[in-house]
Design a protein around this nucleic acid. Structure first.
Lengths: 116, 116
DNA sequence: CAGATATTTCGATATATCTGGAAATATGAA
DNA sequence: TTCATATTTCCAGATATATCGAAATATCTG
């Protein structure tokens, strides 16, 4: 993953409304949600939401598809996982033990790093 | 993890220089690096770097300690892991299988989600 | 203390982002 | 077609962020 793509992705998540939208879409999964449904759920004016959806989409975090009059947005699971790997990439150089999420489970950090 | 803390953290990572600094510190691990060492490595003017280090610190992503005349910055591994968990929290609602990092390894996403 | 080193704070300018009303576009229904 | 629904694009003002020279602060050394 390119650094500038990561900067765009993190930038897209660095805003209250957008983070809330993204989290709803992560929870919704591949089925996604219509713009209207998101606007209603989060009580955001349509133009404002449209702007934020475009930002998330520009960063590659979500996809768009049309279903009749509605536009459905859905999380891009692959990029989500890439970003997760990017955050801890090469963590602690030669001593990966220092990067463990919790003292008890070592497999988390190890498998995550491999997946990048 | 509070949403606004996540917004601050992602915002801190949403800038080229800061992301580069953070990634150096992640690689350096708990030992950290001095401001001067980072400035030299990334070729950033001292005031500019100082501003960005303050942003990362304000977001809780890095810590600061003094060692003689130098200030040493180091990654906060706990917040790094919290952020990682936050990204995929509740992913795909009832069907976590849809969130797998890769088709072959199911344990990654599962253990990650538990750790949040 | 005086001088040298390491880093920050100040300040001014430049650039980017957020917001939402009004108008435009796309689709479906009568 | 004409009307209704769903969503976007346009726009302008308000707010926030990035940059870095100059000056200030902290710490070590002699």
């Amino acid at each position: 993953m390119d650094d500038s793509l990561a900067v765009r992705a993190f930038g897209a998540l660095a805003q209250d409304t957008r983070l809330a939208v993204y989290r709803r879409l992560v929870e919704a999964g591949p089925g996604g949600l219509s713009a209207g449904a998101i606007a209603e759920a989060l009580d955001v004016p349509a133009p404002t939401l449209s702007f934020h959806l475009a930002q998330l989409r520009g960063a590659g975090l979500i996809t768009q598809r049309r279903d009749s009059r509605s536009l459905i947005y859905a999380v891009d699971v692959a990029l989500m996982n890439t970003l997760i790997g990017f955050l801890s990439d090469r963590c602690c150089g030669g001593q990966p033990d220092l990067c463990l999420p919790t003292p008890k489970s070592a497999s988390d950090a190890r498998s995550r790093r491999k997946a990048v």
